[in-house]
């Protein structure tokens, strides 16, 4: 029986980042797991509400988490922002009694939600549940000779004590992923520095400065292309970095290596 996960796509994956969604689903079935889209999911809000007294802005995440709990499934995300928000809200529901109490008081669920669901990023599923060695075995078109820089950005890694994704200053999950596809990973020091994020809307010049540093650093270390998990990172690196280095969603390369047609 195939592994089944509750899947939280998020707003952008239904619009500007459709290919992230499509390739991820197709690769999943090729690798023997299934993403079951959460019914009536609501937008996560894009940024985690830092105010300790904010409840309303966390409820969409709690609803998704509770849905996964009701199906006894792990919740899988793709977009870095969705992952960041849902993972942190889940931590609040587990470890912050005030947030837990007030969110449950509002939602009036049959049984209170207390952070029971395990939140996984798609990359973590590949690493921890499927195994990069198995992915390497499934690769049909190894990306031989391609030098790929993994761009992590901020939200998957930090704050590390809550995200528990990888070493926040020297991560390796995406490098291992790249190697599993038969390509060569290029480590560059700006891979965990900010692309400019939401500031790009009102101050594109800030985003230009920051994303420019990222692409220059990657190019300096000889990367032919970059991969990312985040639509906003992809946008900033494409639009604002003033570099022509191609940027792909990591699932697009996965699909290519697995020999999957990534058209809808």
């Amino acid at each position: 029986m195939a592994l089944k996960y509750s899947y939280y796509p998020g707003c952008t994956l239904k619009n500007k980042a459709k290919s992230l969604d499509i390739t991820a689903r197709k690769c999943a079935s090729a690798l023997g797991f299934e993403l079951e889209e959460i019914e009536n999911w609501q937008c996560c809000g894009g940024v985690y509400p830092l105010g300790s007294d904010e409840i309303a802005t966390k409820l969409s995440s709690v609803r998704a988490l509770d849905y996964a709990k009701s199906k006894s499934q792990k919740l899988v995300t793709l977009c870095s922002a969705c992952h960041h928000v849902i993972k942190r809200v889940n931590d609040d529901m587990k470890n912050v009694p005030d947030t837990r109490m007030r969110a449950n008081n509002y939602l009036k669920l049959d049984t209170p939600y207390c952070g029971e669901t395990q939140v996984l990023h798609y990359l973590e599923v590949l690493r921890d549940e499927i195994g990069f060695d198995n992915i390497a075995k499934a690769v049909k078109n190894p990306l031989k000779g391609v030098k790929i820089g993994a761009y992590y950005g901020c939200m998957l890694l930090r704050p590390s004590k809550i995200m528990e994704f990888d070493n926040p200053e020297n991560p390796q999950i995406m490098e291992d992923f790249i190697k599993a596809l038969g390509a060569q990973s290029v480590i560059f020091p700006y891979r965990n520095e900010c692309c400019g994020g939401h500031v790009a809307l009102k101050s594109p010049e800030s985003a230009q400065k920051l994303s420019g540093k990222v692409t220059r650093s990657a190019e300096g270390f000889g990367a032919d292309m970059l991969i990312t998990a985040c639509p906003l990172c992809l946008y900033n690196l494409n639009k604002n970095s003033q570099s022509d280095i191609p940027v792909y969603y990591f699932t697009e390369l996965l699909a290519k290596a697995l020999g999957i047609d990534s058209e809808e």
């Binding site: 070493n167 926040p168 200053e169 020297n170 480590i187 020091p189």
Partner: peptide, 9 residues
């Protein structure tokens, strides 16, 4: 724990 200083890199 201090990989920001690139000791291991």
């Amino acid at each position: 724990n201090y990989d920001e200083y690139a000791y291991s890199q």
